[in-house]
Design a protein around this nucleic acid. Structure first.
Lengths: 139, 139
DNA sequence: CTTGACCTTCCACCGACTGGAGGGTCCAGC
DNA sequence: GCTGGACCCTCCAGTCGGTGGAAGGTCAAG
């Protein structure tokens, strides 16, 4: 419980979250304001670093800071229902799938147009023709 | 060539680009400053509306405003090489595929974790455990 | 002459940072 | 004791592609 008191730079190294981003997280309320040393420097304990790692991992998985706030609250709530966590995760999965489908559709359109483009010195190009004449919808 | 002079609202209706966004495009240099009527109102001709439709379509296909500027320049350059258009398009396809792959990997991780989560009243949850203990990397 | 739908400009905000200016602190070496 | 470099601090601006709103001018219908 003595806890290793580390500076923001060391917390950054241990969590993978840049110092600047840690300050930003504090500012935006996703983490509580850090304790301060007599010189005004922030310091962090082991559990703070764990929280930062949690956030880092969740960001890597594409969760918004808003969702991460909710996930952290659930994480800390011993009486949570796993249903709430699962629901949040599945909503994120649904959103990812929506975006994947959207991007895949776009990619296919452009790829098809590019395949029909000579790609040489000549100026005629189905890609520009598509953009200019807006033939069919994508979404 | 007399050209139907339309207001920004009408240009918005005809192009699908909101009036506010048209002003934003002008401000950010993607389109030239519109001509002004005696009352200071912007007005747009047929070719301006076509340009806006071009941009609208290109945005739908996920091109950045920077890329759209380049595409417009190529579109207007009668002596363009279709290679340049194709290259730009294929760079965009590559970026889309990178993002699709990234999101798909993330989705699979979360989906797998969610499948292992009871999703009921009980508090134990592999999703939170993953986030807390950061077992493997995603990217 | 008023009402409402337009148009104008300017400024602020979204998400999730990132970069930089300008300044304070701390420690190691000389 | 002093200097240098690596930290730390706060605050402001910029990224990208808009969107929302305030405050005010214009125009046509009733």
């Amino acid at each position: 419980m003595t806890g290793t008191r580390v500076t923001i730079g060391e917390a950054a190294r241990r969590s993978g979250v840049p110092a600047k981003t840690i300050r930003f997280y504090e500012e935006s309320g996703i983490i509580a304001p850090a304790a301060r040393d007599t010189n005004g420097y922030r310091f962090y304990g082991e559990s703070d670093v764990e929280t930062l790692r949690f956030i880092h991992r969740a960001r890597d998985l594409g969760f918004s800071l808003k969702d991460i706030g909710d996930l952290l609250a659930l994480y800390r709530d011993q009486g949570r229902a796993s249903r709430d966590v699962k629901d949040l995760a599945l909503r994120h999965v649904a959103e990812l799938e929506r975006r994947i489908a959207e991007m895949t559709a776009i990619r296919d359109v452009i790829k098809t147009l590019a395949e029909r483009c000579h790609g040489d010195h000549r100026p005629d190009c189905p890609i520009l023709e598509d953009l200019a004449h807006v033939p069919q919808k994508v979404s």
